[in-house]
Simulated assay, not measured.
Amino acid sequence: MSSASPFRRSAPEFPSTSGVQRLQSLAVGSARFAGFWSAVVLPFAMLALVVSGSVAEQAPLFVGLLLANVVALRLGHGHRQE
């Protein structure tokens, strides 16, 4: 007869290092992809505000878009560089 409890687990199983690295690579690649394409699209939204003449009325929005564009540029800088 065995004295092992069915409720007791052995040592916890952690994901393999290659699995963690793969997940990290996927997350970094996705962030770079999103950053790159956001940096491409955001200037068009800012241009629309400038052309419509509503920059003075919606200055916080324009500044927010500008800051988001800077962050997107930094985040997407390494996208598809090999």
Rank of each mutant, 00 (worst) to 15 (best):
P6M: 00
P6Y: 08
S16V: 04
S30K: 03
R74W: 12
H77F: 00
F44Y: 15
M1S: 09
S2T: 12
V71N: 09
G53I: 11
V28Q: 07
G76Y: 05
L73Y: 05
V71M: 10
R22M: 05
G53H: 14
G53T: 12
L66V: 10
G19E: 03
R22Q: 11
G35I: 01
F62V: 00
V40C: 11
V63S: 01
Q21S: 02
S54I: 12
V20S: 10
S30M: 09
M1E: 02
A59F: 03
A72H: 01
Q58S: 12
A27Q: 05
R80H: 15
N69T: 15
G76M: 02
S2L: 04
R8H: 07
T17S: 06
S54Y: 14
A59H: 08
S3D: 09
N69S: 10
L65E: 06
V55Q: 08
V20Q: 10
A39F: 04
G76V: 02
R32C: 09
G35S: 04
L26A: 06
V63I: 13
L66N: 09
F36P: 09
S16Y: 05
A27V: 08
P60T: 12
E82A: 12
S3F: 04
L67H: 04
N69G: 07
S16L: 02
Q24E: 06
H77I: 10
R8F: 00
A59K: 07
S25I: 02
P15I: 01
S5E: 10
A11T: 09
S30L: 05
L23S: 01
A68R: 14
L65G: 02
V70T: 14
L26Q: 10
L47W: 08
Q24I: 06
R32S: 00
R8T: 14
L75T: 14
S52E: 14
A56P: 02
G53C: 11
A31Q: 01
G29C: 07
